[in-house]
Nucleic acid binder design. Sequence first.
DNA 1: TTGTAAGCGTTATCAA
DNA 2: TTGATAACGCTTACAA
Lengths: 319, 319
Amino acid sequence: MVGIKDIAKKAGVSPSTVSNVLNGRKNVGEETRQKVEQICREMDYHPNMSGKALKTGDTHTIMFNFSDFDREFYLKIIRGISDYAYAKDYDLIICTNKSCEKYMNKTFTSGCIMLDVRCSDSMLLKKAAEKYPIIAMDRRLEVPYIKSLVVNNYTPERELMEGLIERGYRRFAYLGGIESEDNSERMKAFQDVLAQHQLPVRRENYYTGDYREKSGYQAAKLLMLTENLPDVLVCANDNMAIGAMKAFKENGVRVPEDIGICGFDNTEMAKVMGLTTVDIPNYERGYLAAQYLIENIDGAEDYETFRITAKVKWRSSTR
Amino acid sequence: MVGIKDIAKKAGVSPSTVSNVLNGRKNVGEETRQKVEQICREMDYHPNMSGKALKTGDTHTIMFNFSDFDREFYLKIIRGISDYAYAKDYDLIICTNKSCEKYMNKTFTSGCIMLDVRCSDSMLLKKAAEKYPIIAMDRRLEVPYIKSLVVNNYTPERELMEGLIERGYRRFAYLGGIESEDNSERMKAFQDVLAQHQLPVRRENYYTGDYREKSGYQAAKLLMLTENLPDVLVCANDNMAIGAMKAFKENGVRVPEDIGICGFDNTEMAKVMGLTTVDIPNYERGYLAAQYLIENIDGAEDYETFRITAKVKWRSSTR
DNA sequence: TTGTAAGCGTTATCAA
DNA sequence: TTGATAACGCTTACAA
């Protein structure tokens, strides 16, 4: 492995001069600089990151942690993160391992973007106490050294509900997902709008799934057993809505003629299936997360929760 | 940051003893071992990876490089890779940057799995010459120090074609993708089977897309301008097939009654849309890639090309 | 403008 | 069974 010393020897200068050239410092003569750069190219020199990190204490690497592989939108978030990170010359480590704690250490990564529900709040708080910079996505933690980036679910879900009522829908059913702040916000918007319009929902018209397609399929099967179908099924995400659409189709229940249906996320599948839903700008939130993280790594001390807006996409699954 | 020295001081032993404990060597008294381990826990010690890597020259990190964010199956490959890597206590870096060359260096990563078409063969050959271990996915490079992992496209595409003919299809159209070995294999199977059955395909029934949904949509639009629709449109991947299905639906051309359609990849969307396609076991090939890579890092010298089998999924888009 | 030398956290060698 | 010491590749005062 060719190192800084080999370059120095070949160029007939000292290692520190080579280092100065490589780091673009100006205390180097033009002639020397040219020569050193030339030799680096010739010898195909690449700096040893470990040596550099060990000395500077800065790895120039950020980590993104996630775990739910079923949801395609992670790819878009990753693209947003990597675009920003590479533009700032940071490296990106993607960790899909619950035991990511050991990497959350300044000697290994400069900071992380956390989107894995399996990592506990208390662990994040401990790391934050060590001044390790963290951006929490889809989880609100209002403490120093952690900035939260959450989606505003409530406003668009309200907008969606108001739109449904405008379109004449009156008898609503709801299919919720796994307990989380996102889930609660979506359901609260559902309930608030109905209450405001004095439209009661019977207990039996609440269903609960796990955000996966299958659970939507099953919920729709159950729903079809009731005597009067509701006008519309509001789902806490697209995957479940799509499962429900499949069940309806298999049983000759037409969408949107017999029942309307809508989701949340605006997945690729929703686009193809014509599902009315709420678009979350995933690329953008990945990009923003990386930006906030690197700004905090660079010394900005911004720990205010940032709420991203999302907006309704009306499609053919509602009339 | 608490280091090995801090532990040593607190435990009243030398740094080397702490190192020996941490690395599970047996030249340490039981009492000492217990004490050191206890203190490590108390002080929440995590080893500094840079120091370790610098000394040992082994980062215990592998890299996965990819770039096409449109195709959901990357998530499955990542899951396969990460499952194997973490089981073997390797870390995983995911690089989405064309300029990944600087990370392909033993001082930074122990090896890489390359699935980015933008990285040139010649660059890979150069790295291989430096004995940097590489697993090339979807690209065949039969040279020492690079092992290729490719999908056998030919056999399942033939099987698909034979099945279509059995089902009574006679007049074929083909929609190809971006020039690559995968693409050529799929098309060759298409042509070979037709030739064998003496079924000619007119030049105008060959279309070319870019593997994206939109290009399938556009190709189908063109296809619908021809006087007699073919019986079936064979697409080089699912995304394009789905675009075509959308175009047909919008124009009142029924699938499979008026035209059959099939793809390649078995994406989530294909499942929902009932698209006949070829299933590529993505989780498994990610897992295998990681396994071969780590085995080669550990000294196995296996550079034989491995061909993964894929199999046909018959669904409702063909009769 | 360039060079010398110390030190980052770890491991490995060798001596005690 | 333990400890002292050198070394990995790099950066950075500080000296020349």
